[in-house]
Simulated assay, not measured.
Amino acid sequence: MSDARPLQQAETGAEAPRNITRQIADNIRDSILNGELKIDERLSTEDDLAERYGVSVPTIREALKRLAAQHLIRSKRGPGGGIFVNRPSFEQARENMVGIMMMLSSLGSFSLIDIAEFRHDMGLMCVTYAVQRRTDDDLAALERELALQEDATISDVDFCAADVRFHQALAQATGNGVYSFFLQGLLEVLIPPANMVVFKFRDRMLICGFHRRILLGVYSRNQRAAEEAFIELMGYLRTKYAEAQDWRRTMDAKS
């Protein structure tokens, strides 16, 4: 990081150290993302970084903690140890994305209608590719989750989890790494809040029926049948989302 410069903001006050910590972490992160710092490259020591940025060692340590939490760096002890640029795995990258989406979802950044539209458009593409590319393992995963959903004795929480995994398996069946990466993570965030809002209004067995038709279409490579079943599922959910939102507005008005 030859272009790293001491930060102009002084380390004074309660807010200043936090801002400086974020700036340092962002500076190092940018150096990693733009390729200035290479994968497995050793970073300078904490003392050297503190001198380079004109801050204290504790401030550098806090910045490095931020980067470690993002899986961008790793520490190694012993001879040849130090702090190295990490190569995040797909799972770690997905965890980062899921964490951000969960935060936005908890802040109410996405409406149920937003979620329904996203699931409709992206899910339909998944169905199209899954019909063409699914494997026997994909079919087994879909069947396994659907069998759980069809068990009337499971809780709404367990039904929701099986619902998420069914659609994640559908994304996996596309054979497309990008769809699988993004949708498996996003569905884990977007479906549960929506499901737990509409569980009062939905018919679980009716949803299972839509899922069964989707699975049969994917199994028989009948694209039209699978897509029609998925479109009907999304139409049904849109109706239930609208009912749930109306009910929530009524409850809010009464409180």
Rank of each mutant, 00 (worst) to 15 (best):
M1A: 15
R5A: 07
R5G: 00
L7P: 02
Q9T: 15
G13D: 09
G13M: 06
E15V: 15
P17F: 08
I20P: 01
R22Y: 04
A25E: 04
R29P: 01
R29D: 10
D30V: 09
I32N: 02
L37D: 01
K38P: 00
D40A: 10
R42L: 04
R42C: 12
E46V: 11
E51C: 02
P58H: 11
P58S: 09
T59S: 05
E62T: 07
E62Q: 14
L64N: 02
L67I: 08
L67R: 07
A68Y: 07
H71T: 08
G82F: 04
F84K: 03
N86I: 01
R87I: 01
F90G: 04
R94G: 14
M97A: 11
V98A: 13
M103W: 03
M103Q: 10
S105E: 14
S106N: 12
L107T: 04
L107C: 06
L107I: 01
F110W: 05
I113V: 13
D114T: 07
D114Y: 02
E117W: 06
D121G: 00
M125G: 00
M125Q: 11
C126H: 11
A130K: 03
D138V: 05
A141E: 10
L148I: 15
E150T: 08
D156E: 07
D156W: 10
F159R: 02
C160H: 00
A161Y: 03
V164C: 07
F166H: 07
H167M: 03
Q168K: 12
A169S: 15
Q172G: 01
Q172H: 12
A173Q: 03
T174W: 08
T174Q: 09
S180M: 12
Q184T: 15
L187Q: 09
L187H: 06
N195K: 08
M196D: 12
L206V: 13
C208P: 01
G209E: 10
F210I: 06
I214P: 00
L215H: 06
G217T: 06
R221W: 01
R221P: 00
A226P: 05
F230R: 11
M234L: 03
M234E: 15
Y236V: 06
K240I: 08
Y241C: 07
A244L: 06
Q245W: 03
D246F: 06
W247F: 13
R249N: 03
D252T: 06
